[in-house]
C-alpha cells in the first residue's frame, strides 16, 4: 500500500523528464605512468604497494614483512603460506583470529589506489575485513587510469558481492587525528606482479 502511495506521489510531483547526460570519457584521459601513480596513491591512503619481478617471490616477501603472522588464509594458488583453509561452508565467526589473508585483486585503479576484489576471490565475505593484515595481489596490466575504466571492466561480472579497497581501515573520529586500524584490517600491502 505504501509502495503505491509513494509511487503515485512521485508521479504527481516529479518534473518533466530531463535527459541523462552523455559521458565523454576523453575529458578524463591522461597520459601518466599508471604503476607509479598507483603506488603513490596506495601510500597516500596509508597502505604499501610493492612491485615484484615474479609471483614466485611473494612468500618470501610476506614472511619478511609479516614475520609474526601464523594463522594465514591464502586465496591464491601461487602462495603456500596458507595455514588455515576455508570453503563456502566456513562459519564467518571462525575467522576472528586470522592474522593474515592473501587475496587476488581483479583490477586496480591508479587515481585512488583502490583494488577491486570480488566474492569469488575470497570465498567468505568477511575475510578481507576481519583479518588483522591484508595482502592483495594485482597484475601490472590490470591497473586502470580511473574509476570509469574500472567500472567498464567489471560490468560483465556475476554480481554477488565485491568492493574497492583503498588502504587499510582507518578513522579520524577523535579530534581529527588519523589512526590506522579501525574496525577492519589494520594494514594493507598490495603486490604488483
Amino acid at each position: 500500500m505504501s509502495r503505491t502511495s509513494i509511487l503515485n506521489a512521485v508521479k504527481k510531483n516529479k518534473p518533466e523528464l530531463l535527459p541523462l547526460p552523455e559521458i565523454n570519457l576523453n575529458v578524463f584521459s591522461e597520459d601518466i605512468d599508471l604503476v607509479k601513480t598507483f603506488i603513490e596513491n596506495v601510500q597516500f591512503v596509508g597502505g604499501r604497494a610493492i612491485l615484484l619481478d615474479s609471483i614466485k617471490d611473494i612468500d618470501a616477501e610476506i614472511k619478511n614483512l609479516y614475520p609474526h603472522a601464523v594463522k594465514m588464509v591464502s586465496c591464491i594458488k601461487e602462495s603456500s603460506l596458507g595455514s588455515i583453509s576455508i570453503s563456502k561452508n566456513t562459519e564467518p565467526h571462525e575467522l576472528e583470529t586470522i592474522d593474515l589473508a592473501i587475496v587476488k585483486g581483479e583490477l586496480a585503479v591508479a587515481e585512488n589506489g583502490a583494488v577491486w576484489i570480488a566474492e569469488n576471490n575470497f570465498t567468505i565475505r568477511v575475510l578481507p575485513f576481519i583479518t588483522n593484515d591484508l595482502v592483495l595481489v594485482v597484475n601490472k596490466e590490470d591497473i586502470h587510469l580511473h574509476m570509469h575504466s574500472a567500472y567498464e571492466s567489471i560490468s560483465k561480472r556475476d554480481r554477488t558481492f565485491g568492493l574497492f579497497i583503498s588502504g587499510p581501515s582507518k578513522t579520524a573520529d577523535i579530534e581529527q587525528c588519523l589512526v590506522i586500524g579501525a574496525q577492519g584490517a589494520i594494514s594493507l600491502t598490495v603486490f604488483i606482479i
Binding site: 585512488n112 575485513f129 580511473h146 574509476m147 570509469h148 568492493l163 579497497i165 588502504g167 581501515s169
Partner: peptide, 26 residues
Amino acid sequence: EKHLGIFLRLLARSATGQPITTYSSH
C-alpha cells in the same frame, strides 16, 4: 552502475579529501 564512476570520484574527495573511501562495498 557506470554512474558510480562519477559519484565515487566526487564523494570522498568532497568529504575529507581522500581520493576514495577505504571501502566501497557493492
